[in-house]
């Protein structure tokens, strides 16, 4: 089964995203900030990461830059999922290696279509 790490400091968002992603066939792990997510990735690199931007301790873009330095860290397809919707921010995320980008609020269709876009659904 494909694995997806859901990284968001909101427990509600993690729960909603988990349900949607489980429905399209992912096994889910959760982290509430970038540091925690990095620890997860060092233990078991997931196939995909759904990544919030603004989080305490370590934010999403910092996490992504750290992740790409890790052994095997270039492998997971990273999909941002954030309220940030400025084009400059989106470009910054793509430049850092994000494959897709979801602007909150989202629904199941949007998540499914974005994961299909990166070839994982």
């Amino acid at each position: 089964m494909k694995t997806c790490l859901v990284v968001d400091d909101s427990r509600v968002i993690r729960k909603v995203a988990r349900r949607i992603l489980e429905d399209i066939g992912f096994e889910i792990a959760e982290a509430s900030d970038g540091m925690e997510a990095l620890a997860w990735c060092r233990a078991a690199m997931p196939d995909a990461i759904l990544l919030d931007w603004n989080m305490p301790v370590m934010n999403g873009i910092e996490f992504l830059r750290h992740l790409r330095q890790e052994p095997g860290g270039d492998r997971p397809a990273v999909v941002f999922c954030t309220v940030e919707n400025d084009l400059d921010r989106i470009r910054e995320a793509l430049d850092a290696g994000a494959r897709e980008y979801i602007m909150k609020p989202f629904d199941g269709d949007i998540i499914a279509s974005k994961f299909a876009e990166v070839g994982l659904a």
């Binding site: 919707n85 602007m103 876009e117």
Partner: peptide
């Protein structure tokens, strides 16, 4: 709307 541009449009096409 933001919903409409997130249905089927790849993010690179949006940018």
């Amino acid at each position: 709307t933001q919903f409409e541009i997130q249905r089927g449009l790849p993010i690179r096409s949006l940018v």
